[in-house]
């Protein structure tokens, strides 16, 4: 089978301007992946499926990954004009100091596709796509028209992660019920406070149970 670099070259030859990037996997599995631009993703997918040598006819696994906003504190070298007394004379001197600076790296939702070939019996080729952010620009093109097996799995990602797949024929919730609001697989998901706790609760459950019971008592108090 072709290496990731060769596949990247083949894609770029077939789909001009596809802008594919290689995402390295540092682990021992070494399943490197190809990051696709959403605008060209469907063309690239069609090429991967129909190319005689690759023939990636089988989309095995589709899944989402949530990468929340990261606050990174880093030391930045800053050059400043500082007033200093040099040899008894006050003068302006340029000095480089390290300053801690906080920077928010915007998060995104990522969709990962694992492709195999049923005819050539090779694989996996891993594709990735990323949304612009986690709130309003969460559209990605659907792969369902290319590989039918994405149908239910993309619905699941829509349900649990909140990625909106444009071009999906039937994008509804699949595991959670209709009318459910949040996306439970997101890392900042907060569980609704609607439990009946068992009396043996302890640790984190006990803390939650105490808060829950306090809230109920408060509501009762407010109601009277």
């Amino acid at each position: 089978m072709k290496t990731v670099e060769e596949i990247k070259a083949a894609i770029e030859a077939a789909v001009p301007g596809a802008g594919v990037e290689i995402v390295q996997n540092p682990g021992p599995a070494a399943q490197h992946s190809l990051l696709l631009q959403p605008e060209h993703a469907v063309d690239v997918a069609k090429f991967l499926r129909d190319d005689a040598e690759l023939a990636l006819t089988f989309l095995s696994n589709v899944t989402g990954v949530d990468w929340p906003d990261k606050e990174i504190t880093e030391k930045v070298k800053v050059t400043k004009m500082v007033t200093k007394t040099v040899d008894g004379v006050e003068q302006q001197v340029e000095e480089t100091v390290e300053e801690p600076r906080k920077r928010v790296e915007p998060g995104y939702l990522e969709v990962v596709y694992h492709l195999y070939s049923m005819t050539k019996k090779h694989g996996p080729v891993v594709l990735r796509m990323r949304t612009k952010n986690r709130t309003d620009a969460v559209e990605l093109p659907s792969m369902t028209p290319v590989w039918r097996s994405a149908e239910f799995q993309e619905r699941e990602i829509f349900d649990l992660f909140g990625v909106v797949f444009t071009g999906h024929p039937d994008l509804r919730r699949i595991l959670m019920w209709e009318g459910f609001k949040d996306h439970p697989m997101r890392r900042d998901y907060v569980e609704p406070d609607d439990y009946d706790y068992e009396p043996t609760a302890h640790d984190a459950v006990l803390a939650k149970a105490t808060a829950h019971q306090a809230r109920i008592a408060e509501q009762k108090g407010a109601g009277q």
């Binding site: 996997n25 540092p26 682990g27 021992p28 696994n61 996996p124």
Partner: peptide, 21 residues
């Protein structure tokens, strides 16, 4: 504690391809 990285492993389960990512 595995080192950072990712892996997709699959087997032929009686019902079909069972994979863990």
């Amino acid at each position: 504690r595995p080192k950072p990285g990712e892996a997709y492993g699959r087997i032929e389960a009686p019902k079909g391809e069972l994979g863990f990512y």
